[in-house]
């Protein structure tokens, strides 16, 4: 453990902690845009600078490790002025169209601009303008809103191992994009979307479905592969408008393309909405639950009487819940009277 003081408060943190970690651990908030606790430190936004006694310049707290006896001040008039300046600079090259931005309500930049009362007028100047939009069906990339925090680049490399995007060009023209400015063609896991602190990366199918006002969040388990990622359905009215995952879930907040974007089948117009019975003509006809279930029960009873229970079988599903599967086999075994029950585990 290393002892240091932060804002005159004596704290003790594990060796190799960064100043930012030490501060957060002790409930001291330090603003940052590029830092993400699950990614390696970047040190690009410079908002997390703090003053360290004996250091000639402010240091980035996200990349500086603590040392014994260090004296840190996270908020001095000078530091706050510098932070304000950085925010002015970021906003001077930002569309500031929060009214229509998907990220409004969950935008870290918006929050900081609000907290610091910064409008981006002081250094108003040229803004990056990009006409081209990406043709992929999953991820909307509005690079004018990109603040080049590098989180997407890091998550794509460090977590996903794909390296689909990187910094390109130089200077003010720096831009994050796939090689040769191609359309994104990757695993579309959307990890980049989940770590983007602004509205630069959003889900295409989220557009104008509902931001954060009046949206309910429901934690559930992904219906796709066996990994069982915990995901959060964002629901507005009776529609899932977005899916995310929380960083403290067993899957650490990471999802794949199916988990993140594959929820749209729920609202498919193809969904079955009425019980159907096949008529003599061969056509299906809509019917009531009572009619359908009585018809089914009658058939099962008839076959059981004529051929025995073992002439009936049941196939359950790895897609259904534990409770449903339990009940299904109980029904087949106890209700019908046969062990002819299986599911698709092996397929």
């Amino acid at each position: 453990m290393v002892s240091l003081t932060i804002n005159n408060k004596k704290v003790s943190v594990p060796e190799d902690s960064t100043i930012l970690e030490a501060a957060n651990r002790n409930g001291i908030k330090v603003p940052t845009l590029c830092h993400h606790p699950q990614l390696t430190p970047f040190g690009g936004c410079r908002l997390c600078v703090v003053s360290v006694k004996g250091m000639p310049k402010p240091v980035a707290s996200c990349t500086t490790t603590v040392s014994e006896g260090m004296e840190v001040a996270t908020s001095t008039p000078e530091i706050e002025n510098f932070r304000k300046l950085v925010l002015e600079l970021i906003l001077s090259d930002h569309p500031n169209d929060c009214m229509t931005c998907e990220a409004t309500g969950s935008c870290a930049l918006q929050e900081l601009a609000y907290a610091y009362g910064v409008k981006g007028q002081e250094y108003a100047g040229e803004r990056r303008v990009y006409a081209k939009r990406d043709g992929n069906p999953f991820i909307e990339r509005d690079m004018e809103k990109c603040i080049l925090c590098g989180r997407c680049v890091k998550v794509c490399d460090e977590v996903q191992g794909v390296e689909a995007i990187d910094f390109t060009y130089r200077g003010f023209r720096s831009k994050i994009c796939p090689s040769y400015e191609d359309d994104l063609d990757c695993e579309f896991c959307g990890q980049c979307v989940s770590v983007c602190p602004t509205g630069a990366l959003t889900g295409k199918q989220w557009a104008r479905k509902g931001r954060y006002e009046g949206v309910r969040e429901v934690d559930t388990t992904c219906p796709y592969c066996g990994t069982g990622c915990t995901l959060t359905a964002h629901v507005k009215g009776n529609e899932i408008v977005r899916v995310s995952s929380k960083p403290w879930s067993p899957n650490e907040g990471w999802l794949c393309v199916k988990g993140r974007f594959g929820y749209k089948f729920v609202n498919s117009p193809d969904r079955l909405t009425k019980p159907l019975i096949r008529r003599a003509s061969g056509e299906f006809e809509e019917t009531s639950w009572t009619a359908a279930l009585e018809y089914t029960a009658a058939w099962f009873k008839k076959i059981r009487e004529q051929h025995g229970a073992d002439a009936i079988g049941g196939l359950s599903s790895a897609r259904c819940t534990n409770e449903e599967n339990y009940l299904f086999q109980k029904f087949i075994r106890a209700g019908v009277g046969t062990n002819n029950v299986d599911h698709c585990a092996r397929l």
Binding site: F42, G43, G44, C45, R46, L85, V86, L89, I90, S92, D93, Y123, G125, E126, I147, L148, G150, F167, Y169, R170, G171, F172, R173, S174, K175
Partner: peptide, 21 residues
């Protein structure tokens, strides 16, 4: 320097641009 900035940090990427302007 603005043209040669790597683009990583805000003060250099945007700050030198504004300085230049």
């Amino acid at each position: 320097t603005q043209e040669e900035s790597c683009g990583k940090c805000v003060p250099c990427r945007v700050g030198t641009k504004r300085l230049l302007e």
